[in-house]
Amino acid sequence: STHNELEKNRRAHLRLCLERLKVLIPLGPDCTRHTTLGLLNKAKAHIKKLE
Rank of each mutant, 00 (worst) to 15 (best):
S1P: 05
S1W: 00
S1T: 03
S1R: 03
S1L: 03
S1E: 04
T2H: 10
T2L: 04
T2M: 02
T2Y: 10
T2R: 02
H3G: 14
H3W: 03
H3D: 12
H3L: 07
H3K: 14
H3Y: 10
N4I: 15
N4H: 05
N4P: 07
N4R: 07
N4C: 06
N4A: 07
N4D: 09
N4Y: 03
N4L: 04
E5I: 08
E5R: 07
E5K: 08
E5Q: 08
E5A: 06
E5W: 05
E5L: 05
E5D: 11
L6Y: 07
L6F: 08
L6V: 11
L6N: 06
L6D: 10
E7K: 12
E7Y: 08
E7Q: 09
E7A: 07
E7T: 04
E7N: 14
E7V: 08
E7G: 10
E7W: 11
K8R: 06
K8C: 07
K8M: 04
K8E: 07
K8F: 08
N9D: 09
R10N: 09
R10M: 08
R10V: 10
R10T: 15
R10H: 10
R10F: 09
R10P: 15
R10G: 06
R11D: 08
R11I: 07
R11E: 03
R11N: 04
R11L: 10
R11A: 03
R11S: 05
R11K: 14
R11H: 09
A12P: 10
A12C: 05
A12F: 01
A12E: 05
A12S: 12
A12N: 08
A12K: 11
A12I: 01
H13K: 14
H13G: 13
H13C: 04
H13T: 06
H13W: 06
H13L: 12
H13F: 10
H13E: 08
L14S: 06
L14K: 02
L14T: 05
L14V: 06
L14C: 06
R15L: 05
R15W: 07
R15A: 08
R15M: 04
R15H: 04
R15V: 02
L16V: 11
L16T: 13
L16Y: 07
L16M: 11
L16S: 14
L16C: 07
L16P: 09
L16K: 12
C17H: 02
C17E: 02
C17G: 05
C17W: 12
C17I: 03
C17Y: 07
C17D: 01
C17L: 13
C17F: 12
C17V: 12
L18N: 00
L18G: 00
L18T: 01
L18E: 00
L18H: 00
L18W: 14
E19S: 10
E19N: 14
E19K: 04
E19H: 08
R20W: 00
R20E: 00
R20G: 01
R20A: 02
R20Q: 05
R20N: 06
L21A: 03
L21C: 04
L21R: 00
L21H: 06
L21Q: 04
L21F: 05
L21K: 01
L21W: 03
K22I: 00
K22D: 01
K22L: 02
K22W: 00
K22P: 01
V23Q: 13
V23Y: 10
L24T: 04
L24F: 07
L24I: 13
L24A: 06
L24Q: 03
L24N: 01
L24M: 06
L24R: 12
I25C: 12
I25P: 06
I25A: 03
I25Q: 03
I25N: 14
I25L: 09
I25R: 04
I25V: 10
I25M: 08
P26L: 06
P26H: 12
P26Q: 13
P26W: 04
P26S: 14
P26V: 02
L27W: 14
L27R: 15
L27Y: 05
L27G: 14
L27Q: 09
L27P: 15
L27K: 15
L27H: 09
L27M: 11
L27N: 15
L27I: 11
L27T: 12
G28H: 09
G28V: 14
G28W: 14
G28T: 14
G28Q: 10
G28I: 15
P29L: 15
P29V: 15
P29S: 15
P29I: 15
P29E: 06
P29C: 14
P29A: 15
P29T: 14
D30F: 12
D30Q: 13
C31Q: 12
C31F: 11
C31K: 15
C31E: 08
C31Y: 09
C31D: 09
C31R: 14
C31L: 11
T32Q: 10
T32K: 07
T32D: 05
T32G: 12
T32R: 09
T32W: 12
R33E: 02
R33H: 07
R33D: 02
R33C: 05
R33N: 05
R33W: 10
R33G: 07
H34S: 12
H34E: 07
H34N: 12
T35H: 11
T35Q: 09
T35L: 11
T35S: 12
T35C: 12
T35M: 15
T36H: 09
T36F: 13
T36L: 10
L37F: 13
L37A: 11
L37V: 11
L37D: 05
G38V: 07
G38Q: 10
G38R: 11
G38A: 11
G38E: 08
L39S: 01
L39R: 00
L39Q: 00
L39Y: 03
L39E: 03
L39T: 04
L40K: 01
L40C: 00
L40E: 01
L40F: 12
L40M: 10
L40I: 11
L40D: 00
N41K: 13
N41T: 03
N41R: 11
N41M: 03
K42Y: 02
K42D: 00
K42S: 06
K42C: 08
K42N: 03
K42Q: 05
K42A: 06
K42H: 01
K42M: 04
A43S: 02
A43K: 00
A43M: 12
A43G: 03
A43V: 11
A43E: 03
K44Y: 08
A45T: 11
A45R: 09
A45I: 12
A45W: 04
A45P: 02
H46P: 03
H46C: 10
H46N: 05
H46D: 00
H46K: 14
H46Q: 15
H46Y: 10
I47G: 04
I47R: 01
I47H: 00
I47P: 00
I47Y: 09
K48H: 01
K48N: 02
K48Y: 12
K48W: 06
K48C: 06
K48I: 06
K48E: 01
K48L: 01
K49D: 00
K49A: 05
K49I: 01
K49M: 02
K49L: 05
K49G: 04
K49E: 00
K49C: 02
L50Y: 06
L50T: 04
E51T: 15
E51D: 08
E51V: 14
E51W: 11
E51P: 10
